[in-house]
Design a protein around this nucleic acid. Structure first.
Lengths: 217, 217
DNA sequence: AAGCAATCTTTACATCGTCAAGTTGTAGTG
DNA sequence: CACTACAACTTGACGATGTAAAGATTGCTT
């Protein structure tokens, strides 16, 4: 509904080409990723066409194919960047010097907020067929690193007695992640007609997790 | 991508014009929906092109536009059919004469199994922009009817004392649905490298829900 | 300086969604 | 029954898209 940025659709920074028109762009690959991410954020995934992208960046239509096998590969790169951001965010949360339980809650809140703030990029990170393909190793590793942070969190919760010893950290992580993912997608798509305020839902989810996962202290 | 296969899309026997080649197809609308669902199931969503579809059904490429505003409208119709199936399934589960808690569990199991058995159609039911658009009233109503069944289930659980009186059936439904949705999508996309056996995950999810939602019997 | 590989361009093609205008069958009115 | 209006369908065309092939330009390595 609300455009995240008031910035017009104009694509900025064709930095190198701005002052000097070189045959070789210089760092086309990164420029493509950035421009793609920008377009996707502002106009949505469907609005991204390789031709327009090439135009806006200032290269020919075929140029991107020297850096990405096909459109999907480009999308995977953008998605990978998303997982990097998310991973960094979670890492920061976990490294805070606050009680474990608080870190747990903030890891939940952080995830949901990230997804709410970058809906189109989040869409890209999941939901495309980027996952089953075996040609995106790097992308997948980046994503699983993210997941592992939650597993570690649960392992700590078990170790410190917030959860029973016989609980399965991996399974719990899967379930938690699934819930966060589901909440994100269903909310984003407007399926929750009532109380689709993301903050409320986040708050409720956190309370629920605490109530259902954690032994009372 | 080349071999979309001449797999004969079975054209359902319409009461009229089953074998006869008429200028007017007779019930093109339904035929299109069924053929689309078939193609989507077998070859995936991306393989569905209106032109090929028209070919296989035996009409010209523009014919579908007399029954659907655009491709999205067709997809919405297919998705709606999916929600009908799911709703029927859940309805049947709920109408069974078995203990309430058992119905609850089977409603969970049924959802996950439905999604696992019809992955591409499930993809269609969510994940397309079918939801935010205001032109698919009927589709959305069908879907929300589905959701309401879960709310009713939770209301009963509260009433019969399996849940505290002050629990919020709607919120719980949202959370449950989100979890089921997340499990479905993440599993389907192969994100759970470990133990991605759908039966195991289903079983674990059910146990978890029982443990976390339900007062001890 | 020479050459080779990386990078970029031009051209071309097949496919797709969709519209406009025309054609054919059907239903309903008199 | 004839006629008309409408619904269902067809043909043809347009613009957009992803991407393959082959040629041009540059810069790095030796």
């Amino acid at each position: 509904m609300v455009n995240k940025a008031d910035t017009p659709v104009k694509i900025p920074t064709s930095k190198k080409a701005s002052n000097k028109e070189t045959y070789h762009h210089g760092n086309l690959r990164e420029t493509l990723i950035e421009a793609s991410a920008h377009i996707i954020k502002i106009q949505g995934i469907d609005a991204l066409s390789l031709r327009k992208l090439a135009d806006q960046v200032g290269v020919s239509r075929a140029a991107p194919y020297h850096h990405f096998k096909d459109k999907n590969a480009l999308l995977a790169a953008v998605a990978e960047q998303g997982f990097e951001s998310l991973g960094q965010l979670l890492q920061d949360v976990i490294n805070q010097k606050i009680p474990l339980l608080e870190r747990f809650k903030q890891a939940i809140k952080g995830y949901l907020e990230f997804a709410a703030e970058h809906p189109t990029q989040y869409d890209l990170m999941f939901g495309r067929k980027l996952w089953k393909s075996d040609q995106f190793d790097h992308f997948q590793r980046q994503a699983k690193d993210c997941f592992r942070l939650y597993v570690q969190l649960f392992e700590q919760l078990i170790k410190e007695g917030f959860l029973d010893k016989n609980e399965d950290a991996l399974r719990l992580s899967q379930l938690l992640w699934a819930t966060l993912h589901g909440l994100t997608k269903l909310t984003e798509e407007g399926l929750f007609s009532v109380a689709n305020n993301i903050e409320d839902i986040t708050q409720y989810a956190i309370e629920r997790f605490e109530h259902s996962f954690i032994n009372n202290p």
